[in-house]
Design a protein around this nucleic acid. Structure first.
Lengths: 219, 219
DNA sequence: GCTTGATATGAATATCAATTCATTTTCATA
DNA sequence: TATGAAAATGAATTGATATTCATATCAAGC
């Protein structure tokens, strides 16, 4: 229910003055949750303030007591979600010792979190791939955090001797994030009858070993 | 200039009656091209018919002589582009004999085409990752064609002995398309100062060999 | 150069939805 | 229970833009 309680008492957006004093009231969370649900169903532009208000059980005007405008709702959502998701990603990575296990845990958790919160997954997929995206700041931060996490793991793996040294880490991040994203995307567009997390192990296997047969390719 | 001339005389959409008789007029192409440019700049919803009309050098009302409505423009674009792009993908694949070379050619051409037509790339990235996407039919077809192409290559590679047999082809497609997509996405969101096609070889290397060191992993 | 059907125009219409704000309700305090 | 400030309401306002349509232009045959 109270999924956003983490947010209480600290608005990290400098321009979020509007709400500062009111965040403690749970109407803020109700609206945020309702908005994400509505956005995920119909897309951001097709959703109306009235729909969100109705879903949250408040009046249209009330929303403007907690958020500057429609866009601001999405900004708040990503700002919160980025922190929440990455906190758990880091935790997951810390649970393993060897680089490959860290990568496996990260991807497993990634798929798990996105499967658990489909609304977030839908918004994330839609917004990260737009050019003039809303919540640009938050999304850039999210990407950077992922990059840093992967970079850290890859470098450790290189020290361990488990990961090749002749690779460009910047590309490896896209290679991995891309595969994971596409698996999530396919799942979202399917009937979602299968378990997304079951894709983690085969996917990691591909990331590590590739699709080629071992001995052949070695230029 | 006349990039869409391929479309002349054959509207593949059954519901495209509106235009059938008028397709030969180049105003159809002018509007289509202008629309894609405008959409790519600001996003579909933020673009107005007036902007498109202005960019195409026609009156607002003229657009409705060639397209049913705003959505229809995008449908026509994807319908055309899917065919055009895949014609060249197939051609590229046919130029090589060995599976790995086919994959390399495919990816090279993929990056090349998307770099060449950035507007298409922007629309493609945005629309393929939405849940309630416009041109759903066309995009599904595009995905299916890519899947089929990859499946064909992978199966040939398995026969040749160059590609592992213990992989799930459905996943391999997402693994590859995801990596390529993410590389394009990063490029689109960068200043685009680097050559996108230069990513093809390192990327294929990752797809084939993975990031792991060779001898270790072999369960 | 007149006629006619096909094209094109762009101002007017109609709709929709974000935002505002005058009014009402709530509730802590005395 | 009275009071007033804070919170909430939702109808009215405002702005925007997709679509229509009465009118104008064009071009080809006569």
């Amino acid at each position: 229910m109270n999924e956003y309680s983490f947010m209480i008492g600290r608005t990290t957006l400098p321009e979020g003055d509007v709400i500062t004093a009111k965040v403690k009231n749970d109407k803020y969370h109700r609206i945020l949750e309702a908005a994400v649900t509505v956005f995920a169903k119909a897309g951001f532009h097709e959703s109306t303030i009235s729909q969100i208000a109705k879903a949250a059980g408040v009046a249209d005007g009330t929303i403007y007591l907690y958020f500057k405008n429609k866009d601001d709702i999405l900004v708040h959502f990503f700002n919160f979600k980025t922190r929440q998701v990455f906190a758990c990603f880091h935790e997951e990575v810390d649970h393993a010792h060897k680089a490959v296990d860290k990568l496996r845990n990260l991807i497993k958790r990634h798929l798990e979190e996105f499967q658990k919160d489909r609304h977030m997954a839908v918004l994330y997929q839609a917004e990260t791939h737009r050019i003039n995206r809303l919540a640009e700041e938050q999304i850039r931060e999210m990407h950077k955090m992922y990059l840093d996490l992967i970079a850290e793991i890859v470098e450790q793996g290189q020290v361990e001797g488990a990961i090749r040294r002749d690779i460009y880490v910047g590309l490896v991040k896209r290679y991995i994030l891309g595969g994971v994203d596409e698996v999530i995307n396919t799942w979202l567009h399917s009937e979602r009858k299968y378990d997304l997390t079951s894709m983690a192990d085969p996917l990691v296997d591909l990331f590590i070993r590739g699709i080629g047969t071992q001995p052949a390719a070695h230029s």
